[in-house]
Design a protein around this nucleic acid. Structure first.
Lengths: 248, 248
DNA sequence: GCAAAAGTGTTAACTGTACACCCATGA
DNA sequence: TCATGGGTGTACAGTTAACACTTTTGC
């Protein structure tokens, strides 16, 4: 097993995962802290990621690594790009950690970045392998990350923003039942500006991607909101075809 | 030099380039045929691509490889994805060729795919290195390619189509001066359907990305068309921001 | 009754779409 | 004079954008 492991490990290629969640208030990202004996590294956060094996493809590697580090599985991961700058592993704090864990700490590693959207309330991440902690961090509070992970995170965010412009978003980030205000808020935090709620509602309803349920919020200190759910058929059609943007 | 070469070659990572051109009639793709001693491989076409060096980043590798195989340089290459399926090099014809050229023909290789749009008339590709021929092939006539290059080509095509929906296209594919019919045709071949020329013209003009020149076609057996050129400032702004698609 | 968020309609400007005929040129 | 592609306008439908007040609930 250990032999198999060493034989198949590809020391030149890794995967890293940018996992977004939404807590009805902010966009959050799943980060790990690595095990470390010295205190310098205590506060180092990074995206979940690791080297791939030579007997798995890239998608499989991303799923495996995410599961090994955070316990999350059955998540739809999408590739968002490869990162291969020569200095991507050369920060001092990162070098120390690499030396403690890698057989070839100086190897040049190209990483393939993946992205996913998940409902923060239906997954309970648990650290394992070299992850000491796994936490959801508000994206706007993340100032530094290990390696070039800040750059990868930014690419993930841009990817999400550009997706929003061409297809509906929300199915993977929200629970089955949600309110239109929650969906509205989600759109606002992704694009970073406020939206007119009347126009937003009208648009979602006209697109026929949400349908109203006979159920309302309870116990809220204001007029209770109706719950909605996505019309998966219409939603999926728009994910596939995109909005009819430019008249082509 | 040769030592340097061997020392720095990364046998696990390659780059492949999908270069699109437009001859006013069809979309074309730049393909190479590899040198080969046996006739089985005579007809094998592939995308220009090769292993990377460990002292260059991915973008540099793509530019170098493209230049080495086709002579093309100073081209804006964009990354479109990584391909790492386990069977991507296992077709019989490909194996034979790999054995003739690679030190480790069995190595697992992940490739990073790049994409570019170029003006077919301002570049004169010349085969070198292991490329025996370099040719522009009409995209619709390409039925098979080496390795998983057909898949990569399809991804490049999809990428181009989705770009067209969110930003203007044409600056890199057309000469400085062009007619609106040529631009119209370009859009038609990319999206694969005909467009109403009146609406198309109106849209391009309203977007302010083209401006009319005081110059007309000469020697054409029909009413000569005015030449246009792009307004680079407005064009670039739309490339950057995308069309204001969804009202967000 | 007050604070908090839900829910609702109208108008004006703009954009997309469908559609058909005359024009300038070379041969 | 004919074949070829260039060039133009209008009307209808649908979409976006801006904007403010009433409702329902818990406390």
């Amino acid at each position: 097993m250990m032999n198999d492991y060493l034989q198949n490990l590809n020391e030149g290629i890794s995967v890293d995962c940018v996992i977004f969640g939404f807590d009805f208030d902010q966009l959050k990202v799943l980060l790990i802290q690595r095990e470390s004996s010295n205190s310098i590294n205590e506060s180092q956060f990074s995206l979940p990621g690791d080297l791939i094996f030579n007997n798995e493809n890239l998608d499989q590697a991303a799923n495996r690594v995410l599961k090994e580090l955070t316990g999350l599985e059955n998540i739809f991961l999408e590739q968002i790009g490869a990162f291969g700058d020569l200095d991507r592993l050369s920060k001092k704090e990162d070098r120390e950690w690499l030396e403690s864990i890698r057989k070839q700490p100086d190897a040049r590693v190209v990483t393939i970045a993946y992205y996913a959207l998940v409902n923060i309330h239906s997954f309970d991440p648990k650290p394992s392998n070299f992850a000491k902690t796994v936490t959801w961090q508000p994206i706007d509070e993340i100032k530094t990350l290990a390696f070039d992970h800040m750059r990868i995170l930014n690419q993930g965010r841009q990817y999400l923003q550009s997706k929003l412009k061409t297809q509906p978003i929300g199915f993977n980030l929200l629970p089955k039942k949600f309110t239109l205000s929650q969906l509205n808020k989600l759109y606002e935090v992704i694009i970073g500006k406020t939206l007119d709620k009347r126009n937003f509602r009208r648009k979602m309803i006209n697109l026929k991607i949400v349908k109203k349920l006979d159920e309302k919020q309870e116990g809220v200190p204001h007029k209770p909101s109706s719950f909605y759910q996505f019309n998966k058929k219409n939603y999926d059609k728009l994910v596939k075809d995109g909005y009819d943007n430019f008249g082509f």
